[in-house]
């Protein structure tokens, strides 16, 4: 899996490409923006082909590290395959999920400024 990190209005956008599983989950977990408890992160899942329980665990674990667990990690552009995994595990209730990355960034920025 490759992680491409960009930033918009102070919000980190991590674009995941490939498979998020036990093998690639540590790369995600050790990402600097993910570790930073103050930083809001938008995870763009448009090119994420597959996710397993380790991947879900990594994302849930990352959200727990944030100061605001629900708004700290925001998910965007989930495809049907990935969405079904979130549904089966009931993990979709833990996140705000957007179908557009820009809208997710706007939401994260609004939350961050409200917190400040």
């Amino acid at each position: 899996m490759t992680i491409t990190e960009t930033s918009q209005i102070g919000i980190a956008i991590l674009s995941l490409n490939g498979t998020l599983d036990a093998l690639s989950a540590p790369d995600f977990r050790n990402n600097r923006s993910v570790i930073d408890p103050e930083k809001s992160v938008v995870i763009d899942m448009e090119n994420l082909d597959f996710i397993d329980s380790s991947g879900i665990g990594a994302i849930v674990g990352a959200s727990r590290q944030k100061r605001q667990p629900v708004g700290g990690i925001i998910l965007s552009c989930m495809n049907d395959r990935v969405r079904k995994v979130f549904e089966i595990t009931n993990a979709q209730k833990l996140f705000h999920i957007f179908d557009d990355t820009i809208a997710a960034v706007d939401f994260a920025a609004t939350r961050q400024s409200a917190r400040a």
Binding site: V70, H96, F98, A103, F107
Partner: peptide, 14 residues
């Protein structure tokens, strides 16, 4: 999300 308003739903499905 269980507490999403109409406005939030529209934003999440932009």
């Amino acid at each position: 999300h269980p507490d999403d308003t109409i406005h939030a739903m529209l934003g999440k499905n932009r």
